[in-house]
Amino acid sequence: MDFIRWERPIEEPVTIAVIGSKRLYQQLQVVAAAKKAKGREFRIIEISETDSTEGIEVLYVGLGYKSNWQTIFEDARANSVLTVGEEDQFLEAGGLIQFSIQRNRLRFALNLDEAENYQLSLSSKLVQLAVR
């Protein structure tokens, strides 16, 4: 979140929504609790693929929702929500950040062209770390 700048005003705490990954949701709940203890608050919610993305800053899209990507991205673009996924072609379809495992390292790629449409800007530091 520290490396992304929203062009719209965002409400605190930052809301992270998860679609289609119970495991990640739970994982994030744990991380959020840890962060809260360090003085930073995150809201972690679980939504369905059809739900509106209004009031959400970061949206994780799980595996198996390729068919819904267009509507989701559409909505996310409109609400300026950072979309994060890990399925192939996620970036090509219009997502912003795609995680992948390369040579046993967790890496990520960025869709810098699309960021403008989302009315988001990604930090150059993030860009340096990104694979692509």
């Binding site: 530091k125 993030l126 340096q128 770390l129």
Partner: peptide, 14 residues
Amino acid sequence: SNAEAALSFNDPYT
């Protein structure tokens, strides 16, 4: 400042 992201994303190589 440069190392912030690397630290955040646990990227010691970078």
